[in-house]
Design a protein around this nucleic acid. Structure first.
Lengths: 346, 346
DNA sequence: TTGAAAGCGTTACCAT
DNA sequence: ATGGTAACGCTTTCAA
């Protein structure tokens, strides 16, 4: 591997001239620059990022910690982060904790050891002491996204979760639903709690009370949605509509309906959050959140800190209701049963 | 940030003693070691990975290039790669090309500039000149996984794709299907071509010929499966069963059936490949491939090269048929139409 | 506009 | 068992 020294020798100039010709950090005469560039070309020289990092004190890497990379939500956000990172000549390394705290600790240690220049955190683990310590140490700036870290007071970018919940309640109430259910991930997650809060509040606006037994928390993935739906729909008086706190779980709810022979939206209206591409695929009514922009904005906040040491304000994104085919008016339960009996259906 | 120098001063020993006490690369007296460890603790010293890389000539990073991180297949494989990487004290950086050749070039350049110690490549892009050049340069070992790079002759780990295709043909034929369709990603992908080949060959064994019009290639994702299914099922004489070259596309096929009112497996039997967790969720019959092991094995091959300069042999993994509820005997088309008419269904 | 040289924080070799 | 010190390949003063 050719080094800067080789290039200097080949071009007949000093090392610092090569460095500056390449970085453009000081004026270089045109002929000199050309000679350098030719030498670079000839030798196939590629600057060592490692050496550059050591000398400059910046690694040119930012870390992204996500909860679960196999939920398509995260890759989309990650793309937003990555694109603005690249625009700043930074690389991105993605760490997926899968809700495992040991993994998360490991990642935080590695990111710190590798001295990444900044971290975008969107895992929302309950007891992230390690992250707290890292932030306390203050050597690596951190911005949050998606899940707000209550105790840590970081700049961040989040969906207006409460508003999202209200929008869903409004939509469902306007369709005539009065028996509303909720399915979400762990209740300690701010997104879940806030979406539920808005939902309950919005329902109250329409004179609807959501009883505790219609509120189910489960694992934050499709499987969780499936078991939660099974529980809710086995109730004596099941909901006619559910708000599911994210699209993957909503897929699980839909799957339960399919396997249990429940019609959607006939027997149950379902609305999710995220608007993953699969939501369009299955016709899921959902709350769209600007995933790519969330990532891009989070990264921008980080670079604000990196570039100017600023302490940027938190950003809140607008949710948007996308009505597709999993929501509709409730079918009167009694009639429904009678009609199904007449039709010879179970 | 405390450096090794600070630790040395604090512990009252030399820099090299600290280095060796930490790495264990040479005998250190117990009291000395303890003093060093205490100093490390006291100062909160963390070795600089950057400096270490520069001095040792190894970055401790391997790169993983995947085609599309939002297909859950890849995160699962990636986990396998990562776990063995971590076991070797290596970090993993994942690059998702999304089928975009410019992105891929960019990633390869970055990985090379960062001087990662090795690369696991599973993107299978058609014209990857840049990768060829990198391999030709020979400074960074590369192993392939999933998609075989015909022109490049790398060590790699792949599914026995042809056998997978045969297994599907056998399964479908044994159920009594005679009109077999195929849906896959771009035909230039070795996985697609091989699975199709095995399928066609297996069908022939049962005296079944698969006509060209029942073979559809599309975008390698759920949406692609959906449009391919739409085309096949609009034929005058549509297939009674399809082999879909991966689970995400199979999901798209299933979605087409749902939205078109086609019963599965009544009107169409569907089998996929991968056995993603979502396949279980929706009851998809599929060919399981050991995703995690593929990743882990690929990483092991890479470390064989890294550790001993060996030239490891390619590994082929066994496919396994998992029968669920999307395959069943074909319903006679004529009878089917009559019966449906009788039932008042369309 | 250019060059020389002092770091950056390690590792690894050579002494002791 | 321990210490001294030359790399590693670059960036960045400081001089000229």
């Amino acid at each position: 591997m050719a080094t800067i020294k080789d290039v200097a020798r080949e071009a007949g100039v000093s090392i610092s001239t090569v460095s500056h010709a390449l970085s453009g950090k000081r004026p270089i005469s045109e002929p000199t620059r050309r000679r350098v560039l030719e030498a670079v070309e000839l030798l196939g020289y590629r600057p060592s990022w490692t050496a550059r990092s050591l000398a400059s004190g910046r690694t040119g890497v930012i870390g992204l910690i996500v909860a679960d990379i196999s939920n398509p939500f995260y890759p989309t956000v990650a793309r937003g982060v990555e694109d603005v990172a690249n625009a700043h000549d930074y690389s991105l390394v993605i760490c997926s904790t899968d809700g495992d705290e040991r993994r998360e600790r490991g990642y935080i240690d590695v990111l710190e050891a590798r001295q990444v220049d900044g971290i975008v955190y969107m895992a929302g683990l309950a007891a992230n002491r390690r992250l707290g310590e890292l932030i306390a140490r203050g050597s690596i700036p951190v911005v949050a996204a998606d899940e707000q870290l209550a105790e840590l007071d970081l700049p961040g970018v989040y969906l207006m979760n409460e508003r999202a919940g209200r929008m869903v309640a409004d939509h469902l109430a306007s369709l005539g639903h009065a028996r509303l259910g909720f399915v979400g991930g762990p209740r300690h997650l701010p997104t879940v709690a806030e979406r539920l809060e808005g939902y309950v509040g919005g329902a109250a606006t329409h004179g609807i009370t959501i009883p505790d037994e219609l509120i189910a928390f489960a694992d934050n993935r499709a499987e969780g949605g499936q078991v939660a739906a099974a529980i809710l729909m086995a109730l004596d008086d099941p909901p006619t509509a559910v708000f599911v706190a994210n699209d993957m779980m909503a897929l699980g709810v839909l799957e339960h309906c399919r396997s249990a022979g429940l019609a959607v939206p006939g027997d149950l209206s379902v609305v999710g959050v995220d608007d993953l591409s699969v939501a369009r695929l299955v016709g899921l009514t959902t709350i769209r959140q600007p995933m790519y922009e969330i990532g891009a904005t989070a990264a921008s906040l980080l670079f604000e800190i990196l570039d100017s040491g600023a302490n940027p304000a938190t950003v809140r994104m607008q949710p948007e209701l996308v009505v597709r085919s999993t929501t509709g008016p409730p079918v009167e339960r009694i009639y429904g049963l009678e009609m199904r009996a007449q039709l010879g259906l179970r």
